[in-house]
Amino acid sequence: MIEIHNLRKEFALSKQQRKELNTSESIATAVDDISFSCKPGRVFSLLGPNGAGKTTTLRMISTIFKPTSGSIKIAGVDAVTHPREAREKIGFLTGSTGLYARLTPNELIKYFADLYKIPKKEFEERKDYLYTLLDMNHFQGKRIGKLSTGMKQKVSICRTMIHDPEVVVFDEPTSGLDVITAENIIELIKNCKNEGKTVIFSSHIMSEVNLLCDDLAIMHQGKMLYNGEMSTFKSEMKSANLTEEFIRIVKSSNAVEA
């Protein structure tokens, strides 16, 4: 379960950044007072154009960033006051996640298992399960730098799931991946849902959203424009398809702003 209340994130702008953004403001609000909740066994999708604040929101949920104000609860743990405890319950994966090229999958997975303090027996069982599930046994001893993109993605998934997290955070997980490799991620999200985990993922690929998500929120310029169930969203749609409806909502928000 993820519970977000009145979440806000401000960044101080450097001189250079003010120049680049053509603003005189010294502070930029990346996330502006948003609230939502993601339930176990359901997939929550965070939609929005570039710069909407999706990544910042997910980074706050994953405790990489500290919110300026508001609260985040991860599986009952206050992630703002107890970030380390919250991190134990989170698995985090992005499309641009890199791996240590000079390590082997075995070494990398063991490293992360050690960081999560997984007992040896539990680690071996979990590793065997994931290696079989992801078909990783034949390349477990090769250096990651020499693996194909698909193999690397499998290692990333294994790394994310090795501690069997209750909450899984995906930030544009299929961005930059080919269709075959992206399919691994889609399968992973489905598995997580079936296992009763709480899943939140950001995307702007509508086919993925349509296929996977149970609940969705649309963000734009740090604000939340829509938050509800996917079935309700579809039934209330004023456009012909999801993509057009998404564009309509964002554009109407721009018109209101103007």
Binding site: S62, I64, R87, G98, R159
Partner: peptide, 14 residues
């Protein structure tokens, strides 16, 4: 640069 720092920061390590 390699994008590995994010994953490290999401582990329960200070």
């Amino acid at each position: 640069e390699r994008g590995t720092i994010e994953t490290l920061l999401t582990t329960p390590v200070a």
